[in-house]
Design a protein around this nucleic acid. Structure first.
Lengths: 345, 345
DNA sequence: TTATAGCACTCTACTGCGAAGAGTGCTAAC
DNA sequence: GTTAGCACTCTTCGCAGTAGAGTGCTATAA
């Protein structure tokens, strides 16, 4: 595919990697010093001029070194993703597993810990969404009398998660009434996937005969609400290790990341773009998706809960982040998470 | 109490308020320009020299303006807290109520929203702990069969919160068995405060006759675990609005705050120091409590859930934060939260 | 006694300038 | 095709000089 030959390719990578390492415009002699291509600075200069022509790198000002453009980063990341053998530090692999093992029973905590872990290893923003609710099954429903005219509805899902909500009742029901409702709901919706539950609830609500029984109608409404709010609910983030952020030269980088935290809604929009079929994906330059996120990139992957439900994990950091190190980390974290969740089934 | 006369006092306040506003060492003529004390710079200078002698202000270098010391801040905050009439912007009061009203049914969300709100108004770190678990009552316990040898235990509290946990059973029990257990647990612990539940669980576990029934023993163990983990669980933070942080001159301020987020454990230690009997309290210079938190201060208050349980809310920010504005905000937020929670009872 | 004006002094912040250095593009030679 | 040499560009750094804000001290006025 490439318009670049093997050698030019290698030099482009050398420039980008150097820039990521040093965060300083890279000149021709810098390249010859750090890498041994067996070429003189003059030759590198010619090649750099060509790369600039093609839009992979650019000069901040005349007679300064070169800095990667967004296009350059994209190309660099693509070649990284093509190498299957992304090597990883054994210690990190071990640490990763150690952090996530043992809390598989508490999905909320597991998600929390995963996001912290991603953040810890990257020093950037770690994000994790829970397995997509549509794919999960509803195992059991309970409605428990709470006060004279209040009841607590509890939804238990196939993966062990529990959702609950207090509901107001227009009159006092006995626990026996509630048990009847519980029974009805379990027969109607027990053991089927949430997406189907949604359909059935909608259908039931449209049937007149049911509407007559106001408690059942109410329960259906609550079910609907609980299921739909599910999605928004559990997105977690962390900025652990931010204190040892690699000399964050640009305060605005930090500001941008902090801004990202503020609006979960936008984050979800971003993550909705992730294609679950592939492995690790990288989005360079998020401003195409969210204008305020200039100079930020995202490395994401997906995991499964051992059944069908898929969730997303990732890192958001400056465009100039260390992809070579972070891509394997995201990849490995997703795989570890899948493994931990599968074993708990 | 004061070793300062009325006039000196007013000038000290003028200096500190100016420093907070401008973040620049304050000189004598600066004071005369911003305030009209009817005094010449020379007089102010004499007073400043006296204040420096007493340790309330200091000079970064010879012939620079003065900067408040930690002692100065403490004194300033004390005088602020003594004024009962801390005026507040009506719009903020309204916005505050608007943000918290309507979600009183979901304590987790309410806590989350409160911390976001504090963060939004202050641009610093907002912290909220849930009502102290010891003070809450255990309303109801359920044990539901989940899989052949797994059960889901659900604890419902007086304030509508719900805690749950999957437990492994060493053999398969029928739902009827589980109902028996549920019944036993409800009779033993229903409607009493958590601190008492703790005692009774401990006592029951020590009795041999109970140990014989292994499921009951197991349930007791789970109860114990669920109750004790309660505390650690729900501390929330936010750094919303951090993007419009008042020209955070010192990157380390931000770093310190971020570091604070990292270790929830330390935060809890900090909050444990808060005396619930008073209104708003201010801790200037947190490094006495947590060494890493240099140059940070905390403004806290407590709220109640309308019954007996107390929780803590507050802001952590740089020592040089705008106390005059933030103390009323924390105060008001605590009161609003109490009000919202009380009405939902 | 207390407040103020004047004055000499101190220290920082800013500015301009020159030298050093890193990097470039171009050209000619290998 | 590659490289050495060279003139040129632009930034960075250090240094000196200056402006300005602020101080403490002293003498004086109220």
């Amino acid at each position: 595919m490439s318009e670049l030959n093997e050698r030019t390719e290698r030099i482009l990578r050398a420039i980008i990697q150097s820039y990521i390492d040093l965060n300083v415009p890279i000149g021709s002699s810098m390249v010859t010093r750090r890498f041994s291509f067996g070429l003189s600075p003059a030759t590198i200069r010619n090649i750099m001029a060509a790369l600039e022509e093609l839009g992979y790198i650019t000069q901040p000002y005349t007679s300064a070194g070169r800095v990667p453009t967004e296009r350059g980063y994209k190309h660099y990341v693509d070649t990284l993703l093509k190498e299957y053998s992304l090597s990883m530090n054994k210690a990190i692999v071990h640490e990763l597993f150690h952090r996530l093992r043992g809390i598989e029973k508490d999905l909320q905590r597991l998600i929390n810990e995963t996001s912290k872990t991603l953040s810890f290893f990257s020093s950037y923003l770690g994000i994790v969404t829970p397995p997509k609710s549509e794919d999960r099954t509803l195992k059991h429903i309970r409605v428990i009398k709470y006060a004279s005219n209040k009841a607590l509805s509890i939804l238990i899902f196939g993966d062990g998660t529990v959702k609950n909500r207090l509901i107001d009742l227009e009159r006092a029901y006995t626990q026996r009434d509630l048990d009847k409702i519980t029974n009805y709901l379990n027969i109607s919706f027990g053991g089927i996937s949430l997406s189907e539950v949604k359909d059935r609830v909608a259908y039931q609500l449209s049937r007149e005969s049911i509407i007559c029984d106001r408690l059942i109608a109410k329960s259906l409404m609550v079910c609907k609400e609980l299921i739909s709010m599910e999605n928004e609910d559990m997105l977690m983030e962390g900025l652990t290790g931010a204190s040892n952020l690699p000399d964050f030269a640009d305060i605005n980088e930090i500001k941008d990341i902090l801004k990202a935290i503020e609006d979960k809604h936008l984050m979800l929009k971003l993550l909705a773009q992730v294609d679950s079929s592939e492995g690790v994906q990288v989005f360079v330059g998020l401003e195409n998706i969210i204008p305020s996120m200039k100079k930020l990139s995202m490395v994401v992957s997906t995991y499964t809960d051992g059944m069908d439900a898929r969730g997303t994990i990732g890192i958001i950091g400056p465009t100039r982040m260390n992809y070579k190190e972070l891509i394997p980390i995201v990849d490995r974290t997703a795989k570890t998470l899948t493994k931990v969740l599968s074993e708990s089934q």
